[in-house]
Design a protein around this nucleic acid. Structure first.
Lengths: 204, 204
DNA sequence: AGGAATAACTGAACAATGTTCAGTATATTT
DNA sequence: AAATATACTGAACATTGTTCAGTTATTCCT
């Protein structure tokens, strides 16, 4: 069935055209600031066309979020090969925070916007998240098994680490450093120092 | 000028009528799901009336956020009197996380929605935040001064604590525990245990 | 007390949004 | 070449935030 294959390919290409334009707009203008009509105008199609490829705005947004997550996961590419689990953990933290601080708009789309996801979509997302979650789990486990940290409960340590790194990113992206009387650049340094300091304190 | 005083009072009352209705709707439906027209219908006024009291939707939302923050600060009322700085710190963390986990919609409005705030409004907000920020700063400082913790840098410790507690709340409200394979109730317990565990580890 | 001035409120109107769908053009099959 | 299936259009609908000329209520002045 060569033709139906090509059809499928064309469908994918069209999807890509849409999502490429949408991605830029969502990044720049956020969820509320992006309109399907403007996306349509940008790619020179009628607004109705988008609905042939995406059920609605949220379905499109879901794919945008997925792309953000894929980019985030890509930021880990240099880290996965690190042998020493504790070093790996350290670099994971840096990679996570570096990506988020350099792509605050991405962070916003990924975490600071809760669109009402259907249960089905949640399952879908689980897959993307699953990798990142599993990666942290394994690294933390190795750290504990090899007695590289002064913690013993795997889940607690995972929560602590994820909570801390994610929280620091949130504070940064939300500009919560302003009421603390810090500048953006200061805060970036402090956040890194904070992570390093924290690591030193959980080191066995 | 008794009359103009009463006018002002009436203006405030009208504001309260609007904001009371709006608060419920924002909490239940979120920012996008709340329309000024429905607020107007609820309070049995015309849509235009709201614009006599609020410049636009964001100005109204700003006051909604402020109310959320006030409620959050209120949750600290039992904590401020605690003498021992380290105990106070512990209870502050609990109060912060308890409030946010019990009022996830509030948390959403406060932190998970960035409306474009004018610089003026930012100044305004600084005041509300200032208290909470100052309260944490003082407590952390006292902990360090009295050598109750094994940390020495005040800013770093503040970031660490705020990042951790805030991050844990974010994970909870975003339901990030799902890809971790945890239930909501489990996570609530784990988060508390995580905080307690963390405190034990920074204790001098 | 009654007319003038001020304030409060209305609701129709506007532009922009998400979304749908009958109709048109294009491509594929027979 | 005709019939069928697919891709696309753009007008239409309901809903949104927002404005503003006009109406109603209130306060002020003499």
């Amino acid at each position: 069935m060569g033709i139906s294959e090509r059809k499928g390919r064309e469908k994918d290409e069209m999807r890509k055209i849409i999502i490429d334009a949408a991605f830029k707009m969502f990044l720049k203008e956020g969820y509320v600031g992006t309109s399907l009509r403007e996306i349509a105008k940008k790619i020179e199609y009628s607004p109705g066309t988008i609905y042939l490829y995406y059920k609605d705005k949220d379905a499109l947004f879901f794919d945008i979020q997925a792309r953000c997550f894929r980019n985030l996961v890509n930021a880990y590419s240099d880290v996965i090969d690190i042998k020493n689990p504790f070093d790996r953990l350290r670099q994971m933290g840096y990679a996570y925070m570096k990506f988020n601080m350099e792509n605050p708009q991405c962070f916003n789309l990924m975490f600071l916007h809760n669109s009402p996801l259907t249960e089905f979509k949640k399952e879908d997302r689980m897959e993307t998240h699953g990798n990142a979650v599993g990666f942290l789990r394994d690294t933390v486990r190795e750290c504990i098994e090899n007695k590289l940290v002064n913690r013993s409960d795997e889940v607690l340590l995972r929560l602590e680490i994820w909570g801390l790194t994610h929280g620091l990113c949130t504070l940064f992206v939300n500009k919560s450093y302003e009421p603390m009387g810090l500048t953006k650049i200061q805060t970036e340094k402090y956040i890194k120092a904070c992570w390093e300091n924290y690591l030193n304190n959980i080191k066995a």
